[in-house]
Write a protein that binds this DNA or RNA. Structure first.
Lengths: 116, 116
DNA sequence: GCAGCTACCTCGCTTACCGAGGTACTGACG
DNA sequence: CGTCAGTACCTCGGTAAGCGAGGTAGCTGC
C-alpha cells in the first residue's frame, strides 16, 4: 500500500535538516526536533535518529557543542554550526538539490505534459 | 567529508524511479537500469538494488511481468505497469513531491533571502 | 508517592542499497 | 577448441541509518 515510506526517504536527509536548522541559531537537541516538527510536521524525526546524527556531526567537526545548565530542568547540550559546518551545509544543500533535480528528471520522463 | 551520500538518499526512491520509467513503456530489467543511467547518471542504481525492487513491486501487484525469449541473447523478463501500479505511481509521486517540499521548507528556514 | 514534562542517551530491529559473485547464452578472437 | 566479452538475470553478505522502546535525571503538581 504505502509506496514510498517517509522513514526510508528520510535516510540521508537528517543531517541536512539538522544543519539547516542550526544555520543561524544555537539550539539544544530537543529544540531542534521541535523546530523541525513545527516547520514540517511530516518530517518529525525521532530522537533515536536525532541524537546519533548530532553526535556524528559533532565528531566530524561540523557542529560545536557546549553543556549548559538548564534553568528549571535538566542540563542541556547546545549545538551551533562550526565554520567547517557551514561548508558541510553548503555541500549538503548542493547535493540535495542535484539529487532532487535528478529524480525529477526521471519522474518527468513519461509524463505527457512535460512543460506544464 | 561526504555530507549526504547518494546511496543513502536513494533509499526509498528506487521504487518511484522504476515506476516512472515504466509509465508508458514495457521494458526488461537491464533496460530500466540503462534508461535511468541515461536520464540521470548520478542516480545509477546497481543491479543489486534494481532486481529486488522489481520483484517487490511485482509481488505487490504494481507491476506485471512476462518472460520473453531474447533474440540473440538470454531470456528476458519484461515489466509493465498494472492498473494498480498506476495508482501506486500516482501515490508515490505525490509522496515524493510533498517530501521534497517539506525538506525545502526546513532547508530554507534560515536562509537570508527566502524570497530570492 | 506517582504521574507527567523536559532533556538526554542507547539498544535492538528493520529496511534497503551496494558490491561482489554466480548462472546462462551468444558471438568474436586466436 | 578455449577464452574472453557482452547481455540479462539473480542472490548474498555487509553496511548505514531511521524507528520504537527503554532508561536516566530533575522539576512540578496532585
Amino acid at each position: 500500500m504505502s509506496p514510498l515510506s517517509r522513514s526510508q526517504l528520510l535516510k540521508g536527509t537528517t543531517e541536512l535538516l539538522v544543519l539547516c536548522i542550526l544555520e543561524d541559531e544555537t539550539l539544544h537537541g530537543y529544540e531542534i526536533a521541535q523546530r523541525i516538527r513545527e516547520t514540517a510536521a511530516g518530517l518529525a524525526l525521532s530522537e533515536g535518529a536525532l541524537y546519533p546524527t548530532l553526535h556524528r556531526l559533532e565528531r566530524r567537526g561540523a557542529l560545536a557543542a557546549t553543556w549548559g545548565a538548564g534553568e528549571g530542568g535538566p542540563r542541556r547540550r547546545y549545538y551551533r554550526l562550526s565554520d567547517e559546518g557551514r561548508g558541510v551545509l553548503a555541500e549538503a544543500r548542493a547535493e540535495w538539490d542535484s539529487f532532487v533535480s535528478d529524480v525529477g528528471a526521471v519522474a518527468r520522463t513519461g509524463e505527457e505534459g512535460i512543460r506544464g
